[in-house]
Every structure is written in C-alpha cells, then in structure tokens.
Write a protein that binds this DNA or RNA. Structure first.
Lengths: 248, 248
DNA sequence: CGAAGGGTTGATATTTGTCAATCAAAGTGG
DNA sequence: CCACTTTGATTGACAAATATCAACCCTTCG
C-alpha cells in the first residue's frame, strides 16, 4: 500500500463525486457508503470551512473533539520531537479523513500546505453516527486499516532504504496518490518543502536537495516551477525504489 | 503510544481473564466487550490451536482468509524486501489480534518466536460477526486505531533517533508491553534475536549487539541467560530515549 | 563430534548529517 | 515601486554515525 495514499476507495470510483450537499460531500471521503437518510443526518451535524495555506487544523495534544473530512487541499501531519525537530507522519489529500483517533487528544499536528476546504464534525456526533450507521463505521474501519498498511509501508521505506530510494519512493507515491484521485494532469503539484520531505523520509533537507538535483541531472524529473513536478522516467525511479543501485 | 504494545484495553482490565471457553477466550483480546450470546457465536466459529516456536501463521501475499487471536506466545511480523532482507513491522503478544487486514492478502509474515496458542477464525465469519455485534466491530476499530498510533510512534523512532536511542526505546516498549499485561516478574522474556531487533529498528545486528554490550557495561541492563532481560536503570534508558546523549 | 545458529568484537568503508556560504523568490513596509 | 527581510534551495567541505566485512566464540542439536 502506498504510504502517501491511505484511502481505500472500495468498490466505488472516487471520481464520480456529486456536488456537496450541505457539508456532507456525498459519495466522497467517509460518506461514500451512506444512504440519503444518513447523509442528511451528517449534514445537520457538520459544517463546511475554508482556510488559507499554513493554517493549523489542530495541534498535537489538543483534545480530539473534532474530525475533519478534507474536500480540497493538501495537509501535512507532523509530530514535534523533544529536541525541536519534527517528524512528518504523512500527507493527506482530498477525500481523506483527519483527526479521528483512538486517544483523547490528537497525536500530531495537522497543517494546510495549500488553501483548503473541509467538513468539520464534532467527535461525539461522529461517534453517534457510527453507532447508528454500521456502513459508516465499517468505512472508518476500512480507512483505518488502509492507513495502517500505508504507515507500515512507509516504515519499510524509512528503515531500510537509501536516501535515493526514499526520495524515489516518495515521488512515486505522490504520483500514485494523485493518479488515483483522477488528477493526471501531467505535472503534479508539490506544495511541500525540501524540509517537509526530509522530515517525512527521515533525511535532512540538504540530502533531499542533493537527491533532487541528482535526479534532475539524470533527466528523471523536472521542476517547471510553480510548485509543480514532472516525472520523466518512472522506470528509473522504480528501479531505484526497488534497490537497483544506479550510481548517482 | 508504545510501538510494541498496540492493544488498547479500553475500560476493562486485561488481567481479569476467565478460563477460555471453547475457543472464545472470554474477556480477552478482541472478545473483551462481548456478551454471552456473542461469545457463544464466536466459539462456534473459531477453533483453538497450539504450535511450536518458529511456526509460520501466515505469509505475506497469502489470501487473508483467517484472523488469529493470540492467547499465548510472541509473534514476529515481518515483510520480505526485494533484496532479501526483512523489515520487522512489529511484535505481538497475548491478547493481540493478527491477520485482520484491509487487503485481500496478508501484508506481512507472522512467525512464532516462542511456542504459541491462538484462536483461528475464518475471515468471512469474523466479518459476519462484526456486522452482528457492533461492540465487536467497535473493538476491532479501537485496536486498529491503537495499532496505527503505535506504528506512527515507531516510525518516529526509526526515522529520527540514534542507534542507542532506538535500542533504549525498544527495551522500554518491551517492558511496558509486558507490564500492561500484568507480567511484571522482574526479568522479561526476550525471545527475539539481535537480527530480529535490528530488522525492527532499522539497524544491523552488529550495531544492536554493540549497543547491548555498551548498555551492559554501564550497568543499565543485564542478561541473566535463558532469553531473559533485566532492566536495571530505567531512568538512564529513558534519558537516552529522549535524546539526552550520554556518550557510550 | 561436527555443523549450524546466534552473539561479540575489530578494522575499515560508506553514507548521511552538520556547518556554512550563497542565491533566488516572495513577501512587507515605507 | 523599491529596499529589506524572510523563506526556501543549492552546494561544498568536513565530521560522525553506522554499515560492511571478517574473524572468532559459545551453545545447541543432530
């Protein structure tokens, strides 16, 4: 499972999304398996928001009183370490559920990297809805299992792969995540900084920068500017990812 | 959350376990929140097994047709990498649920490190039970959320900490996992090899060995033999874990 | 008794991190 | 509109952590 794409879209196709009714973004995100009645309930309980880039949805340690269904934008999830550095736990994209956790407090910060839109719902109400609509609870379980598989996949990347392989895996994962959302517009948006990527992959920003430079030198990627990225040679990236060491 | 102790025991106390009825190990593992009727159902659908050390419960890629509730023993979960090495994704102890995944196939191998006992249930039947008993589904969701938090915690350890800090974190996590299970017998069992630990922490077995030696030299731990480990100075280990660099 | 598995230790190589200088782009305020 | 600051990116020289390779020991098990 792709560590950058935790969602499982089950049987339905994510692209056939209806316009958002109230806030309950029909057939989308967690609401995918709901019937009309459940959607109405959810609409009553949630509300829609828009925020600019760099907004913080919640912080590690805050009481986990709300969950968020991301409708638009990219979010960075990160934990603050005792020594002041941060570990980026993951990135989230449209359709992902944020902030529904096991504990009483959020286990990480959630920060928008781009302007974003999302539904917000009180946790207590979401819990009540889960009890009322088994299909919804099942969906949350599925998303959780998917997220778990993705995190384990990412663990393998961070624990065992070389710097080049990690960056290659990141790029492939990013492309995959966008492709599955039906956004294969050629250039993929990459709003995260070298530092974000390093904190995600367990590398320093300098190492990430050097690796990007090397990839560009080989003609495997290009950065046309405007926070865009173009993947020119997926085969090369996939080989690197698999561990075939082409020397940089 | 402790990466070696994924279970969430909710409100009840894990130690008050009844003798196992049929296979459905009342008040234990996933069955903790079930009433008598549900336990009966589960008993009819599952069966109990014992296996010697080094047995394989399932392999990565096998169709995920069964789930396992571990009653006794320690299990290593690992993924095989293309280059032949392995990444240990986690260890599981009594009370943990194994093999209930999002995908159609198991995402990792599960291998017993000690002799073990467990309940086995067909996945389709477990799914049916989940639909029938919301409390059980809720419990599985809780366990999944707990596992996710634990994996993220472990990710931080592997991505950002020094070798010493990783080993210290491992030892503390192991102690914590056993303590929560009510097994504070002083010496904790440690059936995993240096290689297993290295594959868990993203280190080589040599680095793990050297770190153990250093810890023993400082008098922080002792290995009385018989796959046992004694923690002599938790404070020192916790400091290392937090990043205060006492030089070895 | 010999082989195999696990553990320890040393010498050396390699990767990646650290520190530092510089540059470009994007805001910001007068 | 233009300094001025801030943020992100790049690159180099160097240091440090960890991996790699290799030898050896001990215990267990057939």
């Amino acid at each position: 499972m792709n560590p950058l794409d935790t969602a499982r879209w089950s049987t339905s196709d994510s692209r056939q999304q209806d316009p958002c009714v109230g806030c309950a973004s029909k057939r989308f995100g967690i609401c995918l398996p709901l019937d009309a009645q459940a959607l109405d309930d959810l609409s009553g309980d949630s509300d829609r928001h828009a925020l600019p880039a760099k907004s913080v949805l919640f912080r590690e340690g805050d009481p986990a009183t709300r969950a968020f269904s991301l409708l638009e934008g990219t979010v960075k999830l990160s934990r603050l370490l005792p020594d002041g550095r941060q570990q980026v736990v993951g990135f989230r994209f449209k359709g992902d559920l944020l902030g529904y956790t096991a504990g009483k407090t959020y286990p990480f910060d959630a920060e928008l990297l781009t302007p974003g839109q999302f539904c917000r719902i009180e946790r207590s109400r979401l819990d009540a809805l889960l009890r009322r609509y088994p299909a919804l609870e099942r969906r949350v379980l599925d998303m959780c299992l998917g997220e778990l598989a993705a995190t384990q996949e990412h663990l393998v990347t961070v624990a065992r792969r070389s710097a080049e392989a990690r960056v290659a895996a990141f790029l492939i994962g990013l492309a995959e995540a966008h492709r599955r959302r039906g956004l294969l517009t050629g250039d993929l948006p990459m709003p995260m900084t070298r530092s974000d990527i390093g904190d995600f992959l367990g590398l320093t920003l300098e190492t990430v920068s050097r690796t990007f430079t090397a990839f560009k030198r080989h003609g495997w990627i290009a950065e046309p500017g405007g926070q865009k990225l173009r993947l020119l040679d997926m085969d090369a990236l996939e080989q690197l990812c698999a561990g075939e060491h082409e020397r940089l």
